[in-house]
């Protein structure tokens, strides 16, 4: 063992000790959470009766494909809106003038609202006899079916609203330390506003934009309150289906709920995995 070799090794030991405290709680929660969900979906942890391995739960749930497509559709559209709005919001905030400050404060306020409250509030705003309809004086029968309508408008709007604020917060947070000097340098060298946005701001923001969008996407697929409160009765997104089954009066529905949860998890992991592969290709990261 030579001295040259031992130095990186000491570094490695220190690095391991630095990472370990974060790994332990995450490992317990993720492995425990996924493990117990999978075990339940396979019928190995029944509420009553003896455990027996079976995949019945995955087969007995009807219209799974329709629900999966609906979940994906809602998540893709709302995440796309959130990414675009969030990016431009971040640009406004970083510009640092008074308008940016107002937008910064409002978007920060939006980040702090729990989704449950957001859903209740969007419902009060957009429903047939909601605040907007009242203020504009439009009677319920002429108001478009935004809440619980065929377009899932209110659900998508709520997610897009909350997640765009989140995307903006993440981008501002990661860029604030270095963006302005680059931007000023580019401006001094004569770059136009559009060119600065395209060639300086966007490439620098892209990695955090992608990560924030992936988080928003995963959240949208996994949460149920918004779709349950503002959505249509049928078809239902995966998360709503899982919770309905979990809360079902029959004791045997729990494995089915777990099966839907496992499918949601796989779907989320697959899509976020693709996004992360995209991230590795971006040079600005690292």
């Amino acid at each position: 063992m030579t001295a040259v070799q031992s130095r990186p090794r000491r570094h490695g030991m220190r690095a391991t000790l630095l990472v370990l405290p974060a790994i332990i709680p995450v490992a317990i929660v993720v492995i425990g959470g996924i493990g117990t969900t999978v075990v339940q979906s396979l019928g190995l942890m029944p509420l009553v009766g003896t455990p027996a391995l079976s995949v019945d739960a995955f087969e007995s749930t009807d219209n799974l494909l329709g629900s999966a497509l609906l979940s994906l559709g809602i998540a893709v559209v709302s995440t796309a809106i959130a990414a675009v709005v969030g990016f431009f919001t971040a640009v406004l905030i970083i510009s640092g003038n008074w308008g940016g400050r107002i937008v910064g404060a409002l978007s920060a306020a939006a980040v702090t609202v729990p989704h449950l409250v957001g859903a209740a509030s969007v419902g009060l705003l957009l429903s047939d006899s909601g605040v907007l309809a009242r203020i504009l004086g439009i009677p319920p029968e002429s108001w478009p079916a935004l809440v619980a309508g065929p377009t899932w408008f209110a659900v998508i709007a709520e997610y897009a609203w909350k997640e765009s604020a989140f995307v903006a917060l993440i981008i501002v947070g990661t860029l604030a330390t270095r963006i302005t000097s680059y931007d000023e340098t580019a401006a001094m060298l004569g770059a136009s506003r559009g060119a600065r946005l395209r060639l300086v701001l966007f490439p620098l923001a892209a990695p955090s934009l992608l990560v924030a969008s992936a988080i928003a996407f995963a959240y949208t697929l996994g949460s149920y309150e918004v779709a349950w409160l503002l959505g249509k009765t049928y078809p239902e997104p995966l998360s709503v289906m899982a919770l309905r089954l979990f809360n079902s009066a029959s004791l045997t529905a729990r494995p089915e709920a777990a099966a839907v949860a496992v499918i949601t998890l796989l779907l989320t992991a697959a899509i976020v995995g693709v996004a992360m592969l995209g991230l590795r290709r971006m040079r600005a990261w690292q």
Binding site: V26, V29, M45, S223, S239, R254, A261
Partner: peptide, 21 residues
Amino acid sequence: VLLFSPVLLPPFAAVLGLNVL
């Protein structure tokens, strides 16, 4: 990947299984 993975975990997975643990 592990440290990022909790965001992928749907909250209801916690309801279903984790609590038993």
